[in-house]
Amino acid sequence: MNLHIRIEAGRNALSALGRQPISTAMTVLALAIVIALPVGLFTVLTNMENLLGNWRNQAQISLFLHKDASPQAIQHLQKALAQTKGVVEVRYVSADAALAEFQKHSGMVAAIQTLGENPLPASFVVQLDPLRYPPSALQQLIGHWAQDPAVATAQSDLHWVARLQAILALGQRAALILAVLLALGAVLVMGNTIRLHIAQRRDEIDVASLVGATRSFIRRPFLYQGLLQGAVAGLVAWGIVVAAFYWLQVPVDRLAALYGTQFNLVALTPEQGATLVIASALLGWLGSLLAVGRHLDHTFA
C-alpha cells in the first residue's frame, strides 16, 4: 500500500481532531483517567512488593532448642532446615553465644552473673524468603518445625509478612479485574467518539464510496484517529501516575524515617511507560475498528 495514501489519511485524521480541539481533549483525558486508574494501582502493588522484598531478609524464625536435646537431634534438625525450600540461611546460636550477645546488648552483666548458670537456650535462626510460600503454607511450615523433638518453642515475625502477602494477592486480582473492565471502558469511549465522527462525516463517506473508495480507504483516517488519541491518552496517563507518585513520595519519606529506613517509590520504568502508551494506542485503534466496522456496513451493503 502506497505510503502517500497513509500520509494523506494521517493528515486527514489530524485535521479532523484539530477541528474539534475541545472534544478531542476531553476524549483523550477521559481515556487517560480510565487507563491511569489500573496502572496506578498496579504500580502501588509493585512498590509494596518491593517493600516486602526489602524486608524479607529480615524475615526470620527463631527455633529455641530444648536444653537437653541430643547433639544428634540438633544435627538432624539443622540438616532438615537447610534442605527446606525458601530457606536462605540457617545459623546455630549456642547458649554461650546467646548469652554473650545478650550481655552485649543489655549490659546486665551483673544480673546474669548472679544466676550462676546460663539461663538462655541454644537456638537456630532461620532466614526465610516468605515470598516462596503461599501464606497458609508458611504457617504450616512453622508449625511443623515447632513439633520437632529438639525444638522447645518457635518464634516468628512472619505472620505480618504472610498477611501482607495475602493482601497483595487480593490487590493484584482486584487490579486485574479493574484493568480488564476499564480497558473495555476505554474501547467503548473510543468507539463512541469515532461513531460521532463518522456520523458527522456521513456525506463525505457516501461521496467517497460513490467515486470508488475502498472500505479500507474510508476506514483508515478513523483508525488513525483512534490510534493517535489512544497513544496521547497513554502518555497523559503515564504523566498522571508519575505526578501522583511524586506527590506521594513526601509522606512516604516521612513514614520511612519513622522506621529508620528509606524507601523510594518507583512510578513506571521507561519500558513500562512505553508499553502503556502502545497498549493504550491499540485500545484506541480497537475501539475505532469496532465502531467503523459497524457503521460502514450499510454504506457498502
Binding site: 502517500h4 467517497a208 467515486v211 473508495a213 475502498t214
Partner: peptide, 11 residues
C-alpha cells in the same frame, strides 16, 4: 481531488 485520491494517485 477526492475522485483521484481514493484511487491512490500521487499528489
Amino acid at each position: 481531488a477526492l475522485t483521484l485520491q481514493v484511487a491512490g494517485l500521487p499528489d
